[in-house]
Nucleic acid binder design. Structure first.
Lengths: 142, 142
DNA sequence: ATCAATATCAAGAACTATTCCAATTATAAT
DNA sequence: ATTATAATTGGAATAGTTCTTGATATTGAT
């Protein structure tokens, strides 16, 4: 069985379990939202969207679900300055470009074969577990 | 005149004005603290340190001073995840390496001649105003 | 030097994003 | 079916930061 709710058409099929995390109805819907609306929503954005399908869900549950998904490496949490955290299902190592004029956040991939140590003077012996690259700027409309 | 308080020995001399910002006594002490203790303190860290010299200063004023200094490009505000903001007087374009074991934050400089566009697939027409690079990991004690 | 205009400071209240808590409900294991 | 475990809920609590207001200091013009 893939979905527990065949009555509601599920545009994206989500299995009962992902990397050891039980996919409850709430987690499914949170995850589905992220997969469908890939514009880096905040927890509150997700909350409002998920309510269409689960009117009784609470914001605390959305936070719980997002945390569980992040913890299990299913989604990523992205922070800009001290703004609300945003969430994205793009698991590939990537950075973010924040367009100051539109507010839109674009995923930015690394060029193939790039090594951080080639670019940065890392402290000797540094073992990098996680990289976070955020760019802020404008998109020349030319 | 460089300092208004010759009675208090000032290890670091701070001018009356920096890039158009009037350097009041409070701003001087906040700035001096950052120059002396370069371990990326939080607003509260700065508050506690500055109190030695200005016992009547308030946390709100420290926030105001930090904001004014950031706004005028005299110091930088650095954010890790959703933790308290940290502040540093290192104005050169640099990233941060967060040592997970000690909690120490190291400045990380770019290797000379590195261009972001060589490393990242930027959206076409992107003009970058600000870059933020945060690394998390461990320092191999070898 | 005096005065008005402006900027800064202080203290606490207010705000926002997030987390915690206790009670309920759902799921899984026996 | 019963019990144990985990998830959900709603509201209260928290932390960091910002806002507000009145007081204080500084500047520039006279």
């Amino acid at each position: 069985m893939v979905s527990k709710t065949p009555d509601i058409p599920a545009e994206i099929e989500i299995p009962d379990e992902i990397s050891g995390l039980r996919m409850t109805r709430q987690r499914q819907e949170v995850y589905r939202t992220l997969m469908q609306q890939r514009n880096h929503p905040t927890a509150n954005d997700v909350f409002m969207r998920v309510k269409d399908r689960l009117p009784h869900i609470s914001l605390a549950t959305v936070y719980n679900c997002l945390e569980a998904l992040v913890q299990h490496g299913i989604i990523r949490q992205v922070n800009f300055e001290r703004e609300s955290s945003r969430y994205c299902p793009n698991l590939s190592e990537h950075g973010h470009f924040h367009d100051a004029t539109t507010g839109v956040i674009h995923d930015v991939d690394f060029k193939p074969g790039v090594n951080l140590a080639d670019v940065l003077n890392l402290p000797p012996g540094a073992v990098i577990d996680d990289v976070e690259i955020t760019l802020r700027g404008k998109l020349a409309s030319a």
